[in-house]
Structures are given as C-alpha cells and as structure tokens.
Computed example of a mutant assay.
Amino acid sequence: MGEISIKITISDRIYPLKVNTEEEEIVRRASKMINERIKDYQENYAVRDKQDLLSMAVLHYATAVLRTENKVQSQDTTVADKVDQLDVLLDNFFSK
C-alpha cells in the first residue's frame, strides 16, 4: 500500500526507484522484458551501441502500446455502436 525502494537493472545500469508495493511486480517484469528485448536485438542485429538498442526497445514497446490503444478505441466504438442499435430497437419496440 505504501512506497518501497527497489533497484532495477536495465541494459547493465542500476536504477534505484520508489514504487507502490502493488506496482513492484509490474516494474520488475517491465525491466525484464526490456532487457530481453535488448538482448534479442543485440543477438539478431549488428547493433552494439547500448543507446541504439534502448531506442529500438522503446520503439518496439511504444508501437505495441499505440496498437493496443487503437484496438481498444475501435472496440469501444463498436460497443457504443451496438448500444445505439439496441437503444433504437428498444425505442421502436416500446413506441408500438
């Protein structure tokens, strides 16, 4: 419920953070995912500069977030359209 101090490592650098106890696991998992993505890029591409690897990882995850946001927005629009259709059907039904 409160804040705790943790240390995470990203790309061989240690970052001390204060996080809510509920978010600790998420932050640790995110750090692990970033490190795995960097390792994957390092092994599969001729990129050795840590800054470039970090930039590629950030681009990967930012793109994934935007794709997810677009999908959620599209689903929200679809749900709203369905609700509007149901509303029209109910109006028609009760106005008879």
Rank of each mutant, 00 (worst) to 15 (best):
I26Y: 08
Y61G: 07
T78V: 08
N20D: 03
I14T: 10
L53H: 02
S11K: 02
K39M: 07
V72S: 04
L17Q: 06
Y61A: 07
A62T: 13
Q85W: 01
Q85T: 08
R29M: 07
N44T: 13
D12C: 02
D81E: 13
Q51E: 15
S11N: 10
D87I: 03
R13G: 00
V58L: 08
N20R: 06
T9F: 07
I6W: 03
R29P: 05
D87S: 12
M56P: 09
Q85V: 04
L90V: 09
V19L: 05
K39W: 00
Q42H: 12
D12Q: 12
E3S: 08
V72N: 03
V83Y: 15
A62P: 12
K50W: 00
D12K: 15
I26D: 07
D91T: 05
H60K: 13
Q75I: 02
D49I: 02
V19F: 04
S74P: 04
K71M: 01
T21G: 04
I6C: 02
S74N: 10
Q75C: 04
V47L: 10
Y45E: 15
N70K: 15
S31L: 05
Q75S: 11
Y41K: 04
N70E: 15
E3Y: 11
D76K: 11
S74H: 08
K71N: 02
S5Y: 10
E3M: 11
Q42G: 01
V27F: 13
S31D: 08
D84P: 12
R13T: 01
S11M: 08
R28Q: 14
L53D: 01
A80Y: 11
K50Q: 07
I4C: 10
I6V: 11
D49T: 00
T77S: 14
E23A: 01
T78I: 12
A46N: 14
L54A: 10
R28I: 06
R37G: 04
D91L: 01
N92L: 14
E24T: 00
T9Y: 03
Y61K: 05
V72H: 03
D76I: 05
T9I: 11
D91Y: 04
I10W: 03
M56V: 02
I8V: 15
